[in-house]
């Protein structure tokens, strides 16, 4: 399948180094003037797609972002990392997982990729639902939380990190993969590639044009900061520690 296309999700999220602040009216978090980046799990997804392409197992890597027009910036970064082209699906408001999955499904119908690789979750809402919903909508195989991916002809061997350990499964392509932290270490953007990326195309489509009207299904009632951590105290010895833990019913 060396002429295979790979579609990768690239979500614009608050950079993971930013100390997130909740808006005073509780309606969400502050994003004005805050550094935005590609969701770290999506970077890993993109890196994997690029490595597959470099190994001759895919012909084209398409980066897709769903969100505001500023997500162009993250697509440019994806193009600088090595994606061949970008698709920006604009939405009037921040779409929720089912809407994103439907958008990806519509693009899948258009592009016919052999693989869709997505991050296992986005670090802003931590929903972790799009890959599974997408595979469901498309009725194709899925492998989630991938920590190793090997393509062999029409199928993929995927190593997954699950609660009980490591699981290796084989799935038939086309398929949806969601990737875990330990899959790879994403590359840096190379300086000359930033300039080359300027010449790569980004297509902008409105979600409505893909037939996705409804963007939200849940109403967020309130966003608040977690309670401040209670200060701990020091114990003198291991015995004391065990004693203390027992007393509190932890062991």
């Amino acid at each position: 399948m060396s002429d295979m296309k790979i579609m990768v999700g690239v979500k614009r999220v608050i950079d993971y180094n930013v100390r997130v602040q909740v808006k005073s009216d509780g309606s969400g978090v502050v994003t004005d003037g805050v550094k935005m980046s590609i969701n770290p799990f999506d970077e890993i997804a993109l890196e994997e797609a690029l490595r597959l392409k470099e190994a001759g197992k895919a012909a084209e890597v398409i980066a897709v972002s769903v969100g505001p027009s500023q997500a162009q910036e993250q697509l440019r970064t994806a193009l600088a990392m090595g994606a061949d082209r970008g698709i920006l699906v604009t939405t009037a408001e921040q779409p929720q997982p089912l809407a994103v999955a439907k958008i990806f499904a519509a693009l899948y119908a258009k592009e016919q990729p052999g693989l869709v690789i997505l991050g296992k979750q986005a670090i802003d809402d931590d929903a972790g639902q799009v890959p599974q919903m997408l595979a469901g909508l498309l009725d194709v195989a899925q492998a989630t939380n991938a920590s190793k991916v090997e393509l062999e002809g029409e199928s993929a061997r995927v190593t997954r990190e699950i609660d009980t350990g490591i699981e290796v499964i084989e799935i038939r392509l086309p398929a949806v993969l969601s990737v875990d932290l330990r899959l790879n270490e994403p590359r840096y953007v190379k300086l000359p590639d930033i300039m080359k990326a300027k010449k790569k195309p980004i297509e902008t489509i409105d979600a409505q044009a893909l037939g996705v009207e409804r963007l939200t299904f849940l109403r967020v009632i309130k966003t608040s900061t977690p309670p401040a951590r209670q200060g701990g105290h020091k114990v003198g010895s291991v015995e004391e520690l065990v004693q203390e833990l027992k007393q509190r019913g932890f062991v």
């Binding site: 980046s37 910036e73 440019r76 970064t77 953007v189 300086l191 930033i194 300039m195």
Partner: peptide
């Protein structure tokens, strides 16, 4: 510029 921001990021 995007390039300059990207330099800082890297």
């Amino acid at each position: 510029s995007e390039e300059q921001k990207s330099i800082l990021d890297t």
